[in-house]
């Protein structure tokens, strides 16, 4: 029996299309504050930042389903947890790459050529991604399905804690200068550049990208369900 749930429904996918189309159009055309170093690249807020939000969101989903699996070892929980993590990794890599491109042109006064500085946020994000890549390796290293599901669920909880420590806590403890808001003595979003025009685009953008992330994960989850269905016959 293939499980049917909200992932097969389509209303939220329409929402995703609408929000993302709005993001791309309004994201380029709405006015933004003129800031030194950033210039128009401040618009990357609607794209680069949303990649990380989507990644953290889908990793949280994965964590919830890993915990659920440990409480009640249903195969479907394992499917949701694992496929969510795979999807989150794609968004994380996109966040890293877009960040590198952004930094090349706006860091150091836009001299160019600097895409990987020892910024605590970048290194932290990289370590967090590595710990999730280890999750993939760990899963592929085990053949026994129940053992794989249980051990990777436990590891997933560990990886999530690592991610929070390396993305949210370590950059804020560090004294090294950082361009990321809220880190290394920089103020957070609210105290400077997110003016009311940017909010009009930023919040719909976040919702749109989160929905897109959910959508891609849902396709992965449903494919995996079909695969397991045939495997279990």
């Amino acid at each position: 029996m293939i499980k049917k749930d909200i992932l097969s429904k389509s209303w939220w996918k329409y929402l995703c299309v609408i929000f993302l189309t709005y993001t791309v159009i309004a994201g380029f055309l709405m006015p933004v504050p003129a800031l030194p170093h950033l210039h128009e690249t401040i618009r990357n807020l609607y794209f680069h930042v949303c990649m990380w939000f989507a990644m953290m969101y889908i990793f949280t989903v994965s964590l919830v389903y890993s915990i659920k699996y440990l409480n009640n070892p249903k195969e479907d929980y394992d499917i949701i947890a694992s496929q969510s993590t795979y999807t989150g990794l794609v968004f994380g890599v996109l966040g890293l790459v877009t960040g590198a491109l952004w930094a090349t042109y706006s860091w150091e006064g836009g001299t160019g050529g600097v895409s990987w500085i020892s910024d605590p946020k970048i290194n932290g994000a990289f370590v967090a991604l590595l710990s999730y890549f280890a999750y993939v390796v760990l899963r592929n290293a085990m053949d026994d399905e129940q053992k794989r599901a249980r051990i990777s669920a436990v590891y997933n909880i560990f990886a999530y804690v690592m991610m929070i420590v390396f993305i949210m806590i370590y950059p804020r403890l560090s004294n090294v200068d950082s361009m990321h808001p809220g880190n290394g003595g920089n103020p957070g979003f609210n105290s400077y550049d997110l003016d009311s025009h940017m909010r009009l685009v930023f919040y719909p953008a976040v919702i749109g990208w989160l929905l897109l992330c959910t959508w891609i994960a849902s396709v992965n989850i449903r494919t995996e369900r079909i695969k397991r269905y045939f495997h279990n016959i």
Binding site: I2, S8, S218, V219, R222, I226
Partner: peptide, 9 residues
Amino acid sequence: IDRKVTRVE
């Protein structure tokens, strides 16, 4: 892709 999965289901 979504449609394809739905069809297989």
